[in-house]
Design a protein around this nucleic acid. Structure first.
Lengths: 209, 209
DNA sequence: TAGATTGTTAATCGATTAACAATC
DNA sequence: TAGATTGTTAATCGATTAACAATC
């Protein structure tokens, strides 16, 4: 997949995500080509940054012309692994879990919730679209029988550690954690944390100055 | 508030948020003091980083002993501006908006939704707790009469630009944007973006390697 | 061909870490 | 006092940017 073997920073990957969204938008609007300069403007960064990021993965542009919007979009989809369908298990059928489950963008990107687990007996057995909410206590068995690639944790922080341990035992290699607690994962398991409070506290800091 | 006048990076502020959460936890567990070494372990970073971050704001520790958990927690609350109550307006009463509105952590931090706006006539007039959902078309008037400090955008991306313009006209200085689109704000307005897809796409990238 | 823009190297900038004197 | 740990300076590391030859 990757053409050169330098290690890619998380910064670069996050910017690729942004280029991808910008390119989708340009394609919708029928724009055929885009320069690194224009892409940089739309993304709020420098054109050197755009070219540098892309150069880790190959030569996607044409000197004098720029990049084909459709081709570059396709290339970034490949790079980010968005050409395959990803299956996920959601832990926590609260309001955040609900929002994630129904989040349109995930589906469009090929991320698909196959299982939803909760500990609340009132919720277990009810359905979200075609998915029946299952008891969290059976999660390990269920995931061994019917594995997924990514676990999404949207539970209170107290529960997050045990869930992480459970999904790692079940062989899951990617965890997206929304619980505001520090998880530790072994080598070979990827973890991303999204903490809603951090962004707000950062705003608070800069507004207080 | 700030004691020294170096400019503080977003990186430092985000780590302060994390220290804050760790300290709350330590305080709950009755731990009286913590060293930079221990705080670093709990946060997954280095002790030098911890001491450096704190040193921008003052001397909170005691050589040989470490930091008083309660005192350091209080100091970081001050620094992050969490000792005041922040008022917010929510745009978009969809499932993400709902999750944010009911998110326990925001309340605990002193962030409080005073207004909720939506364009869907079926939702306008209904209540979330004590807050009545108002028509988005009246948002500018409402916010001029009854201002808030922060606007939270949880609408589809198409709507986000107009909302940003509106809240800036109404004098709001802080925007937390969950819509996956690039907003531009004038000098003096703070913007934070939270893009749920980016974290997932980054996971996808590293899982694809 | 001349103008535009890439891909890449080298220079710069900023963030992290190591090291240690100060001091509880 | 001796051991522990801070606060800070200097060294290192890594990310961003500037510059430009290659080339469409």
């Amino acid at each position: 997949m990757r053409l050169k073997m330098e290690k890619i920073s998380e910064f670069t990957v996050r910017r690729l995500s942004n280029y991808y969204r910008i390119l989708i938008d340009l394609e919708k609007r029928g724009v055929p080509t885009v320069s690194s300069q224009r892409l940089a403007e739309l993304g709020g960064i420098t054109s050197a940054q755009v070219r540098k990021d892309l150069s880790y993965f190959g030569n996607f542009g044409t000197r004098g012309l720029g990049y084909s919007v459709t081709e570059l979009k396709g290339a970034i989809m490949q790079i980010l692994g968005l050409t395959t369908q990803w299956t996920m298990a959601l832990f926590g059928a609260g309001s955040l879990g609900h929002a994630l489950f129904y989040h349109q963008g995930f589906r469009e990107d090929g991320f698909f919730f196959k299982h939803v687990f909760d500990i609340n007996p009132d919720k277990v057995g009810t359905r979200w679209l075609e998915v029946e909410i299952e008891n969290q206590s059976s999660a390990e068995d269920v995931l061994r029988r019917d594995p997924v690639q990514i676990a999404v944790i949207a539970t209170p922080p107290e529960a997050a550690h045990d869930i992480a341990a459970l999904v790692i035992r079940a062989g899951i290699k990617g965890i997206l954690n929304f619980a505001p607690t520090q998880l530790t994962v072994p080598e070979g398991v990827s973890l991303r944390n999204v903490n809603l409070a951090v962004a707000l506290e950062s705003l608070s800091f800069f507004l207080s100055m």
